[in-house]
Design a protein around this nucleic acid. Structure first.
Length: 394
DNA sequence: TCTGGGGTCCTAGGACCC
DNA sequence: TCTGGGGTCCTAGGACCC
């Protein structure tokens, strides 16, 4: 049976949620992001704002110049996440085989659903109708025989678009698009392609993979070659598991103030440990990111023999890294902190069961058990963690 | 008043082992 | 004391996306 994939993309998502939550903004240019007067950029803006030349990632100061009558709103991420969950629930009622790619888009495997929902076009219109009636939002949908071309197709016509690329027409469809629409090839890649005399997707289809290899390496060349033909190199096939969680903040003014940085690290530590718990995950690796006034940045990580269990542990390691690597002659523009190599507790338990390190396994399982108890048992978890650290071969 | 915040993946290079 | 090459693991940085 031929595969059928839908890529569903919410139109101007953050701005659309704000308009729906605030009916008085209907028809007005809504600009969600940093507030004017502060450091920052536009996150999302409504189509009314785009008519003034405002777009994502634009400096808010510039957006204000272009669109002084714009309605500037702060990002309410929790609200958008809530609406996103409602959208995904609707999509899941059309197929259980759904992969959420980000807060505002998902890939649906609709293979074999014809008897249930009709043709691809009929199914897509039903999805649009449900989301519009139940949530008051519009989506653009791309349909194709593989995930990659479906993703590209959803961006073909927006907002409220529907683009179907029939099987066998991928190459022609891609050739009709400008290079900017080649998902996965950004500014740097386009510069590299230009140096090879390639300025369009049609050009790219004509060049051999071997020639691309000299410039982009094996994996890069493979990706470009396959993508140019509208085929799937597997970029969207990986499991959607969270591998890291991180947070960062840009200061309003670049700073030398260590205490101010420490305050932030403390906040970050609390936030990260909470997210780690809510993801039911374990991490043994912490990193900090320092960005200086010239925009250069440094990332430094450290490992820990037992998983992070408390905000204090994260904070202490972060401070150690900060003091070791912050070049104190230079003011900081941004500080970030993250936990890496996250593993779900389930996976970890299965692996421990396999590897035969009895002592380690026993100690870690004891820790996991205590972690599941949550915040109240941290003191005992810490005690066991020390025990484990001694026994671990490391 | 230049350049946010949260992620993923790939690659180069060093450490270490055989 | 000097030496090659391969494999693997880890870290840092960069490209990319939303």
């Amino acid at each position: 049976m031929a595969s059928v994939f839908f890529h569903v993309d919410l139109d101007a998502f953050f701005a659309s949620v704000e308009r729906r939550d605030n009916p008085q903004f209907a028809g007005k240019p809504i600009i969600v992001g940093a507030l004017p007067g502060r450091r920052g950029v536009v996150s999302t803006c409504s189509y009314e704002a785009r008519a003034f030349g405002v777009h994502s990632a634009m400096l808010v100061s510039e957006a204000l110049q272009r669109c002084p009558q714009g309605i500037f709103l702060p990002v309410r991420m929790e609200r958008y996440a809530e609406v996103s969950r409602q959208v995904m629930a609707i999509l899941r009622s059309f197929t259980p085989d759904l992969k959420q790619l980000s807060i505002d888009e998902a890939l649906l495997d609709m293979t074999g659903t014809q008897r249930l929902w009709g043709t691809s076009k009929e199914a897509a219109l039903k999805i649009k109708k449900s989301i519009s009636e139940e949530l008051g939002l519009t989506v653009s949908i791309g349909i194709g025989a593989n995930r990659y071309v479906a993703k590209v197709a959803s961006g073909y016509r927006k907002p409220d678009g529907l683009t179907i690329v029939a099987e066998g027409e991928e190459q022609g469809f891609m050739a009709s698009l400008p290079l900017e629409k080649l998902w996965g090839a950004g500014e740097k890649t386009r510069q590299g392609l230009a140096s090879l005399g390639i300025f369009s997707i049609a050009d790219l289809q004509k060049i051999s993979e071997e020639r691309l290899r000299t410039k982009f390496g094996k994996a890069g060349a493979r990706f470009l070659h396959v993508a140019a033909y509208g085929q799937d190199s597997g970029v969207f096939q990986d499991d959607v598991v969270s591998h890291s969680i991180s947070t960062e903040r840009t200061f309003q003014r670049d700073t030398f103030d260590r205490n101010m940085v420490l305050d932030l690290l403390r906040q970050f530590s609390d936030e990260l440990i909470a997210r780690l718990w809510s993801e039911q995950a374990v991490s043994y690796s912490l990193g900090i990111k320092l960005r200086y006034d010239d925009f250069s940045s440094t990332n430094r990580q450290c490992l820990r023999s037992s998983g992070y269990r408390a905000s204090e542990e994260i904070y202490d390691d972060a401070v150690t890294l900060l003091d070791k690597y912050w070049d104190k002659d230079r003011p900081l523009r941004l500080v970030g902190m993250g936990l890496f190599n996250l593993q779900s507790k389930d996976t970890l338990q299965a692996e421990l069961f396999d590897n035969g390190h009895d002592k380690e396994r026993t100690a870690q399982q004891a820790i996991l058990k205590l972690q599941e108890g949550g915040k109240g048992k941290i003191t005992r978890a810490r005690f066991l963690g020390d025990l484990h650290a001694k026994k671990s071969p490391s």
